[in-house]
Write a protein that binds this DNA or RNA. Structure first.
Lengths: 109, 109
DNA sequence: GCAGTTACCTCGTAACGCTTGGTACCAGTA
DNA sequence: TACTGGTACCAAGCGTTACGAGGTAACTGC
C-alpha cells in the first residue's frame, strides 16, 4: 500500500483511543499493535505525540510502571472524557463514510 | 456535526475526483455538490486549491467555458491518470476502513 | 450606474503525520 | 568492563492539507 499519510490524519488518534479502550497500555506497545493491525509504517514518532495530545486534552490517565525489560513505561488508561471523545470520533467517521459512499454511488446530483 | 477538518484530509480530493468522474464540471458547482452531499462546511477556499492540485498532478483536463449567468467557468474533466488516482484513493480508503473496523472489533491483540 | 449573484483565486493559519535525532534503562555476551 | 541490541520515551522541524478571510471579475436586473 502506498502513502496513507493524508488519509490517516485524525484516524490514528481514534485508533489509539480505541486500543486504549480495549485495554490500558503504553506507547511502545501501541506502536506494535498498530503495526500488527496493518498500519505497518506507523512509528513511535507518530504515536507518542498522539499520547501527549490525549493527555493534554484530559482523555487519558497516566501511570508510571516499572518494566522488567527496559526503562519504566507510561501506562495510559482511557477515562470518561476519552470515551466521549472516542464516541465522537466514531460518529464523525461514520458520517464521512456514508457521505463518501453516497458520492461514490451517484456522483452526487 | 462538529469539526471534521482533520478526518477530511485527503478525503476531499477523492470526493472531488469521484464527482468529476461522474460528470465534468467546475469549481463553484463542486462546492455546491459537496455541500449538498452533507459536507456543509466545505467552501471555495478548500475546493479551488484541490482543483489546482489535481491539475498540477495531471489528473484533469481543463476547458474554459462561457457562462450565461456570470464569469467564464473552468470545466474540469477527469482523465486516465485521474481515474487511476481515484482508483488508488478508493483502495487506500478501503484499506484504512477495514483496518479501523478490525481495531474497533477486537481492540487488536 | 449599482447591487447581487456567479465564479475564480490567494494568503495565512492551524493541525497532523512522519522523519530524524536524542536520551536512557536493561540483559546478554565477549 | 565494554559492547550490542532491544525496550521505552521525547523534541524539533518539514510537508501537506483544510479552511477562513479577502480580493477580482463577469454578467443580470433594476
Amino acid at each position: 500500500m502506498d502513502d496513507l499519510t493524508e488519509l490517516l490524519k485524525g484516524v490514528l488518534e481514534g485508533a489509539v483511543m480505541q486500543i486504549l479502550r480495549h485495554r490500558s497500555t503504553y506507547g511502545y506497545e501501541i506502536v506494535r499493535a498498530l503495526n500488527g493491525a496493518g498500519f505497518a509504517s506507523v512509528s513511535e514518532g507518530t504515536v507518542y505525540p498522539i499520547l501527549l495530545r490525549l493527555e493534554k486534552k484530559g482523555c487519558v490517565e497516566v501511570m508510571q510502571q516499572r518494566s522488567e525489560v527496559g526503562p519504566p513505561r507510561k501506562v495510559y488508561t482511557l477515562n470518561t472524557a476519552g470515551e466521549a471523545a472516542l464516541e465522537g470520533f466514531w460518529q464523525r467517521w461514520e458520517f464521512i463514510s456514508t457521505r463518501l459512499q453516497d458520492i461514490k454511488e451517484n456522483g452526487n446530483d
